[in-house]
């Protein structure tokens, strides 16, 4: 973390990133394009936590894979510290961006000891020798709240929460700048989830980490994130700082998402999200605004014309209601 940069310069930037897969239907079916990530531009200032929310199939995990260099974008650029990712080699990218995955039962190799798992980045990158490795593994295990003696144990001997701590230790041992957290707590029990969330918060403050925090749990995102981006069918439909998004959601989809959060408050009943139910098939995305078949406020205009990203002081929102040039512009809503 010696790199000199001002607080506001984005450590991670996505410019018009698109990822298209060819999907074959049936044995002799023609391959059709599936746009998993559609023209996404995002910037993540150093030290912030960008929460990325959306339903399954919206492209958030594909976006994470692109950021980790596991998938190459079809179009667009990913910039880390202003340098384009494609131009860097994978090792230097790996030093800067590390993942924490959802399922701690699948993210640790069952045949390897905890020491082998956590020290793998050091060995891959050829940092120091076996003596250093043990010292560094000891240190990082201590930081994530595990005693050094777990080094000789295997994942199958640990609980879900402990495994996730091991995964965090592996991600942090190379001191990356950015951590991609892909649903890091959704496979954990409630009491363990809060421990991991606290740990992630502490680590960020202590090491000045930047997180991309992918989750479907809006309460968790609200708690941890500083900025939030809402994804729908591969597009970012709204982006704002956490207060702006949770206190004044603008896009009808964001509003529906917030409405569907079930807080443990008895007597409120189950909310009516007023969404048309089916999440569309990404191979056959709807015309115009992709959200229109489920939107309670949709009109014929939404079906015909796709909204453009409208920059507002709060952040971007993609909806005709907030576009001054759209016939649907609604002064009250904006």
């Amino acid at each position: 973390m010696t790199r000199q940069s001002t607080q506001s310069s984005p450590v991670l930037e996505l410019r018009n990133v698109t990822k298209t897969y060819k999907v074959k239907q049936g044995l002799f079916g023609k391959a059709r394009p599936l746009t998993a990530v559609n023209d996404v531009s995002l910037s993540l200032p150093r030290g912030e936590v960008l929460g990325l929310v959306g339903e399954s199939g919206c492209g958030k995990s594909t976006l994470a894979k692109i950021l980790l260099g596991l998938e190459a974008p079809t179009h667009g650029q990913v910039l880390v510290d202003g340098e384009e990712i494609g131009a860097q080699d994978r090792l230097s990218l790996a030093r800067r961006i590390q993942p924490i995955f959802q399922d701690p039962y699948s993210s640790l190799n069952p045949r390897k000891s905890i020491f082998d798992i956590v020290s793998l980045p050091l060995r891959v990158h050829g940092v120091g020798g076996p003596q250093d490795w043990e010292k560094q593994v000891r240190e990082i295990l201590d930081i994530v709240g595990l005693p050094a003696r777990v080094m000789n144990t295997y994942p199958s001997q640990m609980s879900g929460g402990q495994r996730q701590r091991v995964a965090i230790a592996r991600a942090l041992i190379m001191k990356p700048e950015i951590v991609i957290c892909d649903e890091p707590t959704s496979a954990l029990d409630v009491s363990v989830q809060s421990q991991i969330l606290n740990l992630l918060g502490d680590l960020r403050r202590e090491f000045g980490l930047t997180y991309l925090f992918i989750s479907h749990d809006l309460a968790v995102v609200e708690h941890l994130a500083t900025r939030v981006a809402v994804m729908y069918l591969g597009r970012i439909v709204e982006e704002a700082d956490v207060a702006g998004l949770f206190d004044h959601a603008r896009h009808p989809y964001t509003q529906a998402l917030l409405k569907s959060v079930l807080t443990p408050e008895p007597g409120l009943g189950v909310p009516d999200t007023q969404l048309g139910m089916a999440y569309p098939n990404p191979i056959d995305p709807p015309s115009g605004c992709q959200f229109h078949p489920r939107c309670p406020l949709a009109t014929a205009h939404c079906k015909a014309k796709a909204p453009r990203p409208v920059p507002t002081p709060q952040g971007l929102v993609e909806c005709h209601l907030y576009d001054t040039e759209s016939p649907m512009f609604d002064n009250k809503a904006a």
Binding site: S191, L197, N198, G201, P264
Partner: peptide
């Protein structure tokens, strides 16, 4: 009570604050 303290409550729990935990297993 321990369980209820573990969940962030939008509008009630301060954003970014430390959540309650249940130690042990």
């Amino acid at each position: 009570r321990g369980l209820l303290r573990c969940i962030p409550l939008p509008g009630k729990t301060e954003r970014g604050s430390t959540l309650g935990t249940i130690p042990g297993i």
